[in-house]
Design a protein around this nucleic acid. Structure first.
Lengths: 175, 175
DNA sequence: TCATATTTTCAGTAATTACTGAAAATATGA
DNA sequence: TCATATTTTCAGTAATTACTGAAAATATGA
């Protein structure tokens, strides 16, 4: 294979990954563009500027800017500077375990914590009411709340732990 | 508090839970109505018909039907029959551990399995290419793929395990 | 088999979310 | 300070997803 053909194949593979990761993002409830930018930076050997991201994905400046900021907010990518260049360069967090922790933390924040808050509030309200039905409702909400609290604390600890420490133990346990 | 006032308070608490659970659903990437129907059935002491669901949530028949079917497909609710009545009645799965297993299984199916498929495919493609960049890409995709495979198998085992067996052990481990 | 109850489907529309393109704001170096 | 590079914001629009309402399909009992 010629050098050109090889480079083309490489670019094609990257693009395939980016496209598919984008499609996957929609399943995860994060928007396609955000997932694609993340994929692009994951497989890019060098940090990229906003303009490079725009060009590679054929998206507008506003779109690129918004999603780059969101990804930075999550901690999945970060800004790096190059001396003599005033532009921001973005690179992806490439340590898979750290990626996992970031995602776990974010999901906990967006999913289990709000659920817990709702359950506790409704359990409290229903706790003040009399009658068999109210008792049953209260019991159910309390049980759900306790379960979510448990899930919450598991996620917390898993996300905070070091990979080397925790994973083999869990696997052994589940074996 | 009078009996009427008490009943009203109870209904209000249920409605609050339903509304908030619906709002939460949107964070989880499942649609509002589906989450609301689930909440309604979770706090309903009796199984409900499609018409009752429509009325309680003020939604159309088509919407109710679609979401009831989807929830049934997930296994989060199920159809029960009453003798002498030809309508379908729906009730929620109320065992929290079973609910958790169902959600874990569904998320694995919709999130980690497709991710794994993509990573494996792209890793394979990149494995056939020559050059330092291709090698690096291949290594990265392979690493990610292995991590996702690991997460996959953990989810599998957790979802399949019995609550009483697994939870205390994990907690102790993380303590 | 037929009349009726019940569920399912689906074309059209409403609601929501994502994106563009251009203007405003900010940062940098001279 | 000013000119220029760069980033951010945002009103308007496009794209996507959810919902309605009515019609079609199916199931039930007589």
């Amino acid at each position: 294979m010629s050098k050109d053909a090889s480079a083309r194949k490489l670019a094609e593979t990257r693009d395939l990954f980016i496209t598919q990761w984008g499609a996957l993002g929609t399943q995860w409830g994060i928007n396609r563009t955000m997932a694609m930018i993340h994929a692009l930076l994951l497989v890019s050997p060098e940090p990229l500027t906003t303009d490079e991201v725009m060009e590679r994905l054929a998206i507008s400046r506003g779109n690129a800017n918004t999603n780059l900021r969101d990804l930075t907010g999550w901690g999945l990518i970060r800004v790096v500077m190059r001396k003599g260049d005033r532009r921001d360069f973005y690179e992806a967090e490439k340590d898979v375990w750290r990626m996992f922790c970031i995602i776990a933390r974010e999901r906990k924040r967006r999913e289990t914590e709000p659920a817990l808050a709702i359950l506790r509030q409704c359990a409290e309200t229903s706790g003040d009411l009399a009658g068999a039905e109210a008792k049953e409702l209260h019991a159910r909400l309390t049980e759900l709340g306790e379960f979510v609290a448990l899930a919450n604390s598991v996620m917390d600890k898993v996300a905070a732990a070091e990979r080397s420490f925790i994973v083999p133990k869990i696997l052994k346990l589940l074996g």
